[in-house]
C-alpha cells in the first residue's frame, strides 16, 4: 500500500471546534445533536478533486487590480505556505479567499452593515500553491464589522481561507486574523477552540521582510492541512 493510501492522522483533541458552541448563536439550531459516527477512511475520502490553473484568472491573486481603479484601504500582501501536519509542503493546493472591504462591508446582498461599498473592490481571490507550498496575494486590509450575535458584537478583521489539499479529508475552511486585534478576546468564532496555541495559529504575523517600501504592508500566514503519518522530508524553521 502506498503512503498516499495511508489514512489521515486523527484530529488532535482541542485543536478543532466542536459543532455546538453556544456563544456563537448560529450554531445552536445548526449543529448536529447526535454524536458523529466514527467510520474508517476509504478511498472515497483519501481521493479528492484536483484544481488546475484553469480555475484561476489573471487578477485572482491581486484583489486591488480587479476593477478600473484601486480600492480605498491599506494595501497588504499576504503570503505563507500550505503544509501538511508532518511539515511537508502541499503543492498545487487551491486556496480561495474572501473578505470585507476596508470599511468592514462585504459585497453581498445579505450584508447589512451601513458602511460604504466602493466600486473597486469585490473581495474575492483564488490561487494555487507552488511546488514548495508557497502562496502570495495582494489585497487591502479588511475592516471590523458589527454583527447581531450579541450586544455590541464586532467581528475582528479577518480574511476567509478555503483550501483543498490532496484528499478530501484535507478540506479546510478557516479565517486569518491580524496581530494585535483588540476584538479577538470578545469574538465567539475565534474563541470556539479550546487550545490556545491552535487559536493563535489563526493569527497572521506582521512580515517586515515582505513589505514593499512606499507600497504595501505584509503579513505572513501558514496553513496546516490534515496529514498522514509520514517522515518529514526536510525540516523548516
Amino acid at each position: 500500500m502506498s503512503e498516499l493510501q495511508q489514512p489521515f492522522l486523527p484530529v488532535k483533541p482541542g485543536t478543532q471546534p466542536a459543532f455546538l458552541h453556544a456563544p456563537y448563536g448560529s450554531s445552536v439550531l445548526r449543529a448536529p445533536q447526535r454524536p458523529l459516527i466514527v467510520v474508517p477512511q476509504t478511498l472515497s475520502e483519501l481521493s479528492g478533486p484536483v484544481f488546475g490553473h484553469g480555475a484561476i484568472g489573471t487578477f485572482d491573486n491581486d484583489l486591488t487590480k480587479q476593477h478600473a481603479g484601486e480600492p480605498l484601504g491599506e494595501r497588504i500582501i499576504v503570503s505563507g505556505r500550505v503544509l501538511e501536519e508532518n511539515g511537508r509542503p502541499v503543492a498545487g493546493a487551491l486556496v480561495e479567499v474572501w473578505q470585507a472591504n476596508a470599511a468592514g462591508r462585504y459585497l453581498h446582498k445579505r450584508a447589512q452593515h451601513a458602511a460604504p461599498l466602493g466600486p473597486n473592490f469585490s473581495g474575492a481571490g483564488r490561487f494555487l500553491t507552488d511546488e514548495q507550498g508557497f502562496y502570495r496575494f495582494t489585497s487591502i486590509k479588511p475592516g471590523a464589522y458589527p454583527w447581531g450575535n450579541h450586544y455590541n458584537a464586532w467581528r475582528p478583521a479577518h480574511i476567509h481561507f478555503s483550501l483543498f489539499g490532496a484528499g478530501l479529508l484535507t478540506r479546510l475552511v478557516t479565517q486569518m486574523y491580524f496581530p494585535g486585534d483588540p476584538l479577538l478576546p470578545y469574538d465567539p468564532i475565534y474563541n470556539c477552540i479550546d487550545d490556545e496555541q491552535a487559536k493563535q495559529r489563526m493569527i497572521s504575523s506582521f512580515d517586515l521582510e515582505n513589505t514593499i517600501p512606499d507600497t504595501a504592508l505584509a503579513f505572513s500566514y501558514d496553513v496546516i492541512l490534515r496529514g498522514r503519518n509520514a517522515t518529514p522530508m526536510e525540516t523548516h524553521k
Partner: peptide
C-alpha cells in the same frame, strides 16, 4: 516543524463572494 492542522472556522454568511465562481 510539526503542528496540528489549522483550526476550522465557519464559512459565515458571505461565502458566495469567494466560492460562487465554482458553483
Amino acid at each position: 516543524m510539526s503542528y496540528p492542522a489549522t483550526a476550522s472556522q465557519t464559512v459565515g454568511p458571505y461565502f458566495k463572494i469567494g466560492l460562487q465562481y465554482l458553483d
